[in-house]
Design a protein around this nucleic acid. Structure first.
Lengths: 173, 173
DNA sequence: CCTCGGTAGTTAAAATTTCAAGGAGAGCTC
DNA sequence: GAGCTCTCCTTGAAATTTTAACTACCGAGG
């Protein structure tokens, strides 16, 4: 049940159930994703004192010019809602890893800026995190599989953020 | 920064940073996963009144003999902690979609049982959910890509649940 | 200038998840 | 059968995320 094929003669068009193969793919994907997310959350909570999403925010800031980004820009890069980002930045600010700055051009705007301290945390914890990612994923896959995975995930990601107006994207909510 | 290659001569072994290609794969994976998770959570919250994880629990129960599973067994299948499951089942019980039953063999044990009402919710919402999964993933991938994805994700999933004792698995925490 | 609809970001409250602890029974061993 | 350890599951509190407003500002017309 749930993704299974069943017989029926009801009025609405028969759902395109997943085949057994498709079900196996989907289950593998869900299980791996859930386990991987949990694993990285745990690794970073232990070694860096923050969940994976928060770590990702610091990385985005570190990769940006002036180590700063507008809030909405950061939400877009991280694929999360602005509300979630507001809470996250508030917490990171308390830790002294991020600071807010007003945007001179737009008085509604805010920059999130990575502090020197935040950069230092990243320097200390990045090696361990990369190692965790390698062990969990890259070390286990052939170069061909890595390539395939990249292509597949890019397709899925693009499909979920259509350029059309009215798309229900997290950072626009 | 974060996954970047840098020069250094410090004492600890130089971290095995991700190459540019690996970084692209990783970013695609993270973005697609985040967006997909958000998308399905939203779809199910709207159409079934519950988050994706909760829906998955009902599906596991529906697929089980007697539509019932021991709590730890269910946690294992869903790759979540028993604590999280306890809270989730409590909520689903309030909705009338799941009921608890004592285990006769082991007085510590509990069964989570899918109610007729829960099964009905699944019947009503499964078609829409399968369609969402198709549109987001399967309809966009070639059969070869689907196959590759399944193999890749199975490898990753297996790597994250080693059979050794002392493994930090959610349902054993 | 004034209004109006849209944008940027925040916030309170509710829902969910994590963390740490605990209660009760099982399964030993002596 | 008493003591000990481990397992099964739950619980309360803290942390995070979602949801639904809400404030302040921008920008286009009039």
């Amino acid at each position: 049940m749930g993704y299974m094929n069943t017989a029926s003669t009801s009025a609405p068009a028969e759902p395109r159930w997943l085949t057994d193969d498709e079900q196996r793919v989907w289950r593998s994907y869900m299980e791996a994703s859930t386990l991987l997310w949990d694993h990285l959350d745990r690794q970073l909570q232990r070694d860096a004192g923050m969940p994976h999403v928060y770590y990702g925010l610091l990385v985005k800031l570190a990769d940006s010019p002036q180590r700063r980004l507008r809030m909405t820009e950061l939400a877009m890069l991280a694929k999360i809602t602005r509300s979630r980002l507001s809470h996250a930045i508030a917490r990171l600010e308390k830790n002294g890893w991020v600071r807010r700055e007003d945007c001179p051009d737009d008085k509604r705007g805010q920059f999130a800026v990575l502090t020197e301290q935040g950069l230092e945390v990243l320097r200390e914890t990045a090696p361990g995190h990369v190692e965790a990612v390698r062990q969990a994923m890259f070390d286990r896959l052939t170069p061909e599989q890595q390539k395939a995975l990249g292509e597949i995930m890019q397709i899925v990601a693009e499909g979920l953020q259509p350029s059309e107006a009215g798309a229900d994207l997290p950072w626009l909510r």
